[in-house]
Design a protein around this nucleic acid. Structure first.
Lengths: 216, 216
DNA sequence: GGAATAGTGTCTATGAGACACTATCGT
DNA sequence: ACGATAGTGTCTCATAGACACTATTCC
C-alpha cells in the first residue's frame, strides 16, 4: 500500500516531529430548578479539586467521540452533540506536560445526568462555578455565549423542556439561559410561529390555563 | 521541582498515551484588483498539488506562533493576527498518519504578500480555489464566514485599504467581501458615524470628487 | 450637454420594546 | 371580588431597503 514512511523535504518522517498530548474538556450545561443554568463538574482525583470533565484522546479517535466517552464514563450521559469551542494551547497550562485541550460544549436535560456519581460530580451555577483554572472559566464563558446565541431565535432547540410545554415554561427556560428577563408579549410573538398548538390546556400554574405547544 | 512524572489513576504517565501530530493550516485572505477576494495557496512539495500554507507544531510552540512561522517562511508575511476556526480530526484526513489540523484565518493587504515566492505560491479566488482537499475547502468556507461577519458593521477593520479612502472605495471593498452589491445610501449612513472626515477631496474617479475619510 | 459619481431627503416595511386591555382560571 | 396568568391590540422607535432628487466633476 504505502512505499515506506512519508518524508518531508528535510528527510524527516512524521515520527520525528514532537507531538503534544491532546485532551478534550467539555462544559455540559443544564437547567436546574433552584440554581438556573448550571455546569457539570467532576472531582479530578490526583489533581487539584474540581474541573470540567475531560480525557485524553485515544489512538485514532475523533474529538467528538472522546467527549462522548469522557461523559459516558464520568456521568453516564449519552445522546450528546458536542461542539468545538476553542483550542487552549498555553505551554504551561497543564503542569503534567505539554497538553493541548480542545474545549467543547454540550447541553442536556438534567434527567440525563441523573446517573452521575454524587460524590465525584457536582452541578454549579455558571455565574459562580467555584475555583477553576483559567482555562475552564474561559470554556464556560464561551459555552454560555454559544448557548445564548443558539437560544435567541429558536424555541428550546436542545430539548431542555419536554415535548409539550406552555409558552410561559418556554420563556422561563430562555430567561435562565439569557440571564435577563425577556419580554412576555414579544417572546410569544417571536416563538409562536415556530410552535404547533396542541389545543390542550394546562393548569399547572395559578392563573388562566395556558395552551400546550410542541416544537415545529 | 517535580516529584517524578505525573501518573493517573491507572498508573500511566503522560508518555503512555498516544499522541497525534498537530498541524496548523491557514486561509490567508486578501483583496485582488482583478479577482476580488482571493486566498493564498502554496505548492506542497512531496504532496499533491496546491494547498493552504501549514506546518507542524514545534515543541512547546503556541498555535498562533506556528501560524506566523509558516506564513513567514512560505510567504514572508508578518504582522499577522491569526484566529482559530476549527480542529479537523478525521482519522484518515492525512495519508501521512494521524494528524490533527487546527484551521486558522487571517486577513492582510495584498502588499504584505508581495515578497512571496512566485513559483510556489498563488492567489486564487475564494469562489474557485482550484482542486483542494475537503478540509481546505471547508477552511476557506469558514474563513469567509468569519470575514463576512467581521465586515458587516465595521469599516474595513483589517485595513485592507489605506488609512484614507472614499466611501465608494470602502463600499467596493466590502462588496467584494460580502459577495453581493451593497446599497449605496444605506452603506454610507451606516459607516459614516464610524469614520472621521478629512475635509480633503479625492478626484481619483470620474464623477464628482468624494471626500476622504479615516477610520474612527 | 451628458455620463458618472457624491451626498441627502423621505417613504415604507419590519422587528423589537412598551403599554394596556380583555379573558379565564384558583382562591 | 381579587390576584395571577394567558392572550391580543396598538403605539413607538430603530433599522434597513427603496427611490428620487440635487450637486459636482470629466468628457
Amino acid at each position: 500500500m504505502t512505499a515506506g514512511p512519508y518524508r518531508d523535504r528535510s528527510g524527516k518522517t512524521l515520527a520525528d516531529y514532537p507531538r503534544p498530548s491532546v485532551a478534550v474538556d467539555t462544559a455540559v450545561l443544564t437547567l436546574d430548578e433552584r440554581n438556573g443554568l448550571v455546569v457539570l463538574q467532576v472531582h479530578r482525583e490526583n489533581e487539584r479539586g474540581w474541573g470540567l470533565p475531560g480525557t485524553f484522546l485515544h489512538q485514532g479517535e475523533r474529538l467528538a467521540d472522546a467527549v462522548k466517552r469522557s461523559l459516558k464514563f464520568k456521568a453516564n450521559v449519552d445522546g450528546l452533540a458536542p461542539r468545538q469551542l476553542h483550542v487552549f494551547d498555553e505551554p504551561g497550562r497543564d503542569n503534567r506536560g505539554w497538553v493541548l485541550s480542545v474545549a467543547h460544549v454540550d447541553v442536556v436535560r438534567q434527567e440525563r445526568l441523573a446517573q452521575r456519581l454524587p460524590e465525584s460530580t457536582r452541578l454549579m451555577p455558571v455565574d459562580s462555578p467555584g475555583r477553576l483554572s483559567f482555562d475552564h472559566a474561559d470554556i464556560i464563558a464561551r459555552a454560555l455565549g454559544y448557548l445564548r446565541e443558539r437560544y435567541t431565535r429558536s424555541p428550546d432547540p436542545d430539548h431542555l423542556l419536554d415535548d409539550e410545554f406552555t409558552i410561559r415554561e418556554l420563556r422561563l427556560a430562555h430567561e435562565q439561559i439569557a440571564g435577563t428577563p425577556l419580554q412576555r408579549d414579544w417572546f410569544r410573538r417571536t416563538m409562536e410561529p415556530q410552535l404547533i398548538p396542541t389545543g390542550v390546556l394546562s393548569s399547572r400554574g395559578r392563573g388562566r390555563p395556558a395552551e400546550l405547544f410542541r416544537r415545529a
